[in-house]
Amino acid sequence: MFFPISGAHISPIYLAIVGFVIGILGGFFGVGGSFIAGPALRLAGLDWNFAVGTDLAHIVGKSVVAARRHRALGNVDLRLGSIMALGTIGGAEVGAQAIQMLKRAGNVNLVVSIVSIVVYVSIAIFMLWESRKTLRLEKGRAQRGLVKGGKSKKDYSAFGPVTRAIQKVKIWPMVALPTSGIAAISLWMILLVAFVGGLFSGFLGGGAGYIRMPSMVYVLGIPTHLAVGTDLFEIIISASYGTFSHAVKGNVDILIALVMHTGAVIGAQIGVIATQYFAGPKIRLAFVPLPLIGAAIVIYTIISGHKL
């Protein structure tokens, strides 16, 4: 099928399947899935600037579906999501401007490829270390009889001491997040986490849930299930802004996004239902291979220069 806006020939079945897979991942992990979608679009022949912008548009639609499902399950902290949206928008604009600079310099594909590989691999390594350590700690607690029956509904993290230290930073104004079980946390910490997420969103595409979801759990101390739902809610706002910004700069093929999204609708529903059957650390451990797959696709496109 020919997509006139980007001038690309891509199979709509390929796009729908990519959307379906990303939908499942998004519903389950609360991420936009750009670490798969960006490289998958690049592999199909789109330039990085189009892959980034189009992926953002597709993520808006996918997040609307998944966030509505999570809201029904009580997994969305609206106050946290609204605050984070402000920080994310600022970061996304800085990231989009950086893409424009690289586009003008003519090396957008190489630079974004290298940065994405470094980011994806780093996230995977960190989450593998943390989730395995947490599961080992939980097992130890169960063996010592601290957790009845060896299972706990509380979302433990091996990164807990660092999270508590961050929560103790008292930079005014402090905000309470009762839905997430946080009595007081500095507004600036939330905005900083959101800004960094937005920066990655604008630069590498997608909602940057691959960095924001772990940041919400490890830095802000949000329970994993709530981090998943709130991240999706926040992504609707920030990805809409990102889509607008990229569309104005000529980086969005909305027809490709619409086709991808048809697959994502079904996938997102499966993913959301699946979260009910897994504990937080196991969700985080299952997340580990995903950024690595994204990195592998990018490495493949750099080495071989092949496109589907």
């Binding site: 597709h58 509505r68 999204h261």
Partner: peptide, 30 residues
């Protein structure tokens, strides 16, 4: 074809319609 021409001649309108289209499709398909 309409979106293609909109993208070339009216970028801001295209950007707004792109967001409305994807959100509308999301609600419709859900």
């Amino acid at each position: 074809q309409w979106l293609y021409e909109l993208e070339i001649h009216h970028r801001y309108t295209y950007a707004g319609i792109a967001i409305l289209l994807i959100i509308g499709q999301a609600i419709l398909l859900e």
